[in-house]
């Protein structure tokens, strides 16, 4: 179907946001649920597909852009936030979503995560956290518990405390912090809608089990719990709440209004005017 024959955005359904490319993911992988929740959110928002860009790095999770009917960029490992930041700065009118895994975002891309939180461009960052490197077959990630001993590279566990994405995002200045679960596409899709609408950097930390390398995480279904008290707006209160949390609380944890990043502005000049400043 060519675009001209395609339905107008208001009649687009979730399936119209699917590209038709079959995902490479294992059966039962949590990433399927994230894709379902995302296409549902996009349909809800009636976002025109050609004004939507999905940016990712490398990992099983980072394959997601190919499965959505939108513009996309499947870049290199860990640099999705930077690439998305450049795109958003150059084309502020686009809706730019950034997607990836916990390894991509918090290990190799950790520095960009900190600075994306600080820079507060209007981006939505969806991290599919499975506490493992799926694509490279089961190594520990920054969010893996210190005593997980199933990885060949760290047979005695990493011994390192977990990286706490929500706490670190808060400390780095993010204004929108939510947690979802891939096994709850309806709830996740509501969070995604809110995150996309938020005018600034929005982190959606999604618990997304990898049944292949962390089969024990099938129990997340029974361990997640929804907190519908609403988001904290005060960073101190939010810090307390996030630190006390068991990491399985779903919902919007923190939200506050911040001024989004804006490029420098200046009155227009011709090239000739600029060149005249170089006269000897």
């Amino acid at each position: 179907m060519t675009e001209s024959q395609s339905p107008t955005t208001s009649t687009l359904r979730a399936r119209d946001y699917k590209s038709g490319v079959t995902p490479v993911w294992c059966p039962g992988c949590g990433h399927h649920g994230v894709l379902a929740a995302l296409t549902r959110a996009l349909a809800h928002l009636e976002l025109p597909r050609e004004r939507l860009a999905l940016i990712s790095g490398i990992g099983c999770s980072s394959r997601l852009p190919a499965y959505v009917a939108a513009y996309g960029f499947h870049g290199v490992h860990g640099r999705a936030l930077a690439l998305a930041g450049g795109l958003k700065a150059a084309r502020p009118e686009l809706t730019v979503l950034v997607l990836g895994g916990d390894g991509d975002g918090f290990s190799i891309g950790g520095n960009h995560f900190l600075h994306a939180c600080r820079r507060n461009q209007d981006l939505t960052y969806v991290v599919m956290d499975n506490e493992v490197y799926g694509m490279t077959k089961g190594q520990a990630s920054p969010t893996t518990a210190p005593d997980w001993q199933q990885a060949k590279l760290t047979p005695h566990g990493t011994g390192m405390p977990r990286f706490l994405p929500t706490a670190i995002a808060l400390a780095a200045g993010a204004g929108f912090i939510a947690r979802g679960f891939s096994g709850d596409p309806a709830g996740l899709s509501r969070l995604l809608v809110e995150a996309i609408e938020y005018p600034g950097f929005a982190l959606v930390h999604v618990l997304t089990p990898c049944p292949t390398f962390r089969p024990e995480h099938r129990d997340w279904k029974g361990r997640v719990h929804v907190d519908d008290t609403g988001p904290s707006t005060d960073p101190v209160a939010a810090a307390r709440r996030i630190q006390a949390d068991d990491g399985k609380t779903l919902g919007l944890l923190f939200r506050r209004a911040l001024t989004p990043w804006r490029a420098e502005q200046a009155p227009a000049c011709t090239l000739e005017e600029i060149e005249s400043g170089l006269l000897a």
């Binding site: 860009a53 930077a82 690439l83 450049g86 700065a89 520095n111 227009a268």
Partner: peptide, 24 residues
């Protein structure tokens, strides 16, 4: 000239930002 300069957090970010803008 209707453009902008962005100070990146490092050169890894800089080159990827440039890729993103060019994609745009």
């Amino acid at each position: 000239r209707d453009g902008q300069l962005l100070q990146a957090e490092d050169e890894l970010a800089a080159v990827n930002m440039v890729i993103g803008a060019s994609f745009g």
